[in-house]
Nucleic acid binder design. Structure first.
Lengths: 234, 234
DNA sequence: ATGGATCAAATCCGATCGGATATCTGATTG
DNA sequence: CAATCAGATATCCGATCGGATTTGATCCAT
């Protein structure tokens, strides 16, 4: 309900505080609704509803939806309208992991070389946050887990020094898709162990180890989710 | 100049031809102007101009520009306006090639496994088209070369069967950037040889060879462009 | 008095809005 | 069961609002 204005998208060295774009707020509001599953996968998103709900005109809403579409989080059908991206299926999940497997280990290796010390510190903070997550409430716990996991990987992608790689991985919105699929799951401590290995390798400035650790992490993550998938299907 | 309505973006199995979106036409028009360098890199793009020039309202123009921005071909500065993406610099070019190097060889290998026969036929057509290009006019020749080269790689990415990989590579608009950088160059026949190796490997359904050939091709292409870059600077 | 800097009005242009039009959907009727 | 009608929704438009840029006039320092 409360829309987070803070988007982690722009580097925002912001020496100059420009007036907020209305579209940004709308973007955040819709993004939250997608994350919180208030808008279910495949659910229709009517512009008119948002006009009433958010009290702004169509223009900023269309602008925000346009961006979300570009990110693959909503889909637009001509003369039909917008809807939330459909639930990711098995094939989509495999494609997602295939692509991550190609890019993220490289990113981790580069990050081990190039990442500034303060970014590594942030990484440690995120990592320790994830360990704090105890299951008071399974759902909200997993939500925070997914959020942190996303931030962890995003920071490493950023640390690769390759903006295109960072954008590419950000565009996948891995944590959103996985969360929407498995929000009923509990956070696993396996991921914590794997993250620790990656973190240590980066701290030691050991690219090879970072690459291997990342590859291992993604591979294991894939197996966890795949097992889950086949469990459901029968 | 003539704007093709047909965008190669959507898979377009198009069972139903819906009325054309005005935004699509605008998209094509601007895209052409970027490709033809009528709008130079970094050049301002005023909405009002396009309103007069194309005879449509602001809305479809904003919609088109929004999409172009998502694709990274134009940049938007809040309360300032739109402008064409700036000339790619050396660092950007390296990032571009680093990413391609990670993804495209894999895509080629997958394509060798999965690509349907008729797609391979299209690939051959494009390949032979590229050989036909003789330098009547250096610039238009290179333009056609860049176009075909883009289509060649796009088709292979599509043939990988991984939509995310296809989107990722399409989003880079490699041929646009390279063309805008080197439109004064002449098409090289080296690329033709390298393409031939890739094509043969795919036809033979040999994933390993396709992967190697693609890796080799990108590596050589990178060297060609890098040499050119340092020639200019030095 | 001249050169440079500062401030303010005027103009330009994007951001936002509300409304008009065309299309799709599904419900009703012959 | 087909055709039609009504409701809903997206597309597109023209206009207004507000921030940004430019111009030029004024003021200070040399």
């Amino acid at each position: 309900m409360t829309n987070r204005t803070g988007e982690l998208k722009h580097s925002d060295t912001g020496l100059l505080r420009r007036p907020t774009r209305l579209g940004d707020e709308v973007y955040g509001a819709i993004y939250s609704q997608l994350m919180s599953l208030k808008i279910p996968p495949g659910g229709r998103i009517a512009v008119d509803n948002l006009v009433r709900e958010l009290g702004v005109s169509q223009t900023p809403i269309r602008e925000a939806l346009s961006r979300l579409e570009a990110q693959g989080l909503v889909v637009k059908t001509h003369l039909i309208g917008y809807s939330a991206a459909p639930q990711m299926d098995l094939s989509g999940l495999e494609q997602l992991y295939d692509l991550r497997m190609l890019v993220e280990p490289f990113a981790a290796a580069q990050a081990a070389k190039l990442m500034p010390e303060e970014a590594i510190a942030s990484l440690e903070t995120i990592d320790s946050d994830m360990r704090q997550v105890r299951d008071e409430d399974a759902r909200s716990a997993y939500s925070r887990f997914a959020q942190s996991d996303g931030a962890f990987h995003d920071l490493i992608a950023l640390g690769s020094g390759n903006g295109l790689i960072h954008d590419t991985l950000a565009r996948l919105h891995t944590h959103v898709h996985l969360f929407r699929l498995y929000f009923h799951t509990r956070a696993t401590s396996d991921a914590n162990r794997e993250h620790a290995r990656i973190l240590v390798a980066i701290k030691n400035r050991n690219p090879k180890a970072a690459e291997t650790a990342m590859r291992d992490h993604i591979e294991r993550s894939r197996k966890r989710f795949m097992r889950f998938f086949t469990d459901i299907q029968g």
